[in-house]
Amino acid sequence: MVGLKLDPFVHRNSWLHQWDPRYKFIGLMFLIFAFTLVQEVHLIPAMALVTALLFLQSSLPWRVWLSRLLVPAFFLLALAIVLPFFAGETVLWQLGPLALRLEGLLAFLLVAGKVLSIITIVFILFATTPMLLVIKAMRSLGLPELMADMLLFTYRYLFQLQDDYEGQSTAARLRGYQNSTSSLQTTSFLLGTLLVRSYEQSERIYKAMRLRGYGQHAFYAYPFSAESKDRWIFLLVTLVALVFALLG
């Protein structure tokens, strides 16, 4: 799971890092939802500007940001082929049967601008906040405790189960397993074993947790202490979001 851990970047020192996680979470969520509302192409530069500004302020490495674009890039590529060349009437440029059309091009620019901006902001949110704090912030914003518990445990055991699975498949490879469609049976055994191991481990974990006082609710009593600065930033970001939502 290369690149899964964002934690190397969460301890930097920008105001985005310092921003109270609760305000940061809602503020940036407002912003991305506002961005989804945008339907006007001429708002794209403004959207990109806001996003770029936030990204520069976050002092996050752009190489990591670039690597995050890999998954959505495939999707955007498909749209880049379909929309500008097949959608719309106004032909901008023609080469044989290939015609670049204005409406399709604009539609593509709109989608691409939105996708890239939102992805960047989501990246900023999770790269400047430790996951533990994100979950605690969501909890104090009203996420049910059971759900918060599940998020925490899932996060805690993701990496370990990933290691478990890697270990299993390495051992299997040393005895001749190759991940392909012809060895689905072995892949299924490996998956089944992972589930059985998770199940057995969860029983042990529960006992160990009970012995250390799990269920006392004290865990989420994180002293979030917002200062007026946190609120001002929140207000500003919300205003920006509002502008986009209204103009979009």
Binding site: D164, G167, Q168, A171, T186, F189, L190, T193, R197
Partner: peptide
């Protein structure tokens, strides 16, 4: 050893 044994 749990990594090693995965068959039913």
């Amino acid at each position: 050893v749990n990594d090693q044994l995965f068959c039913p």
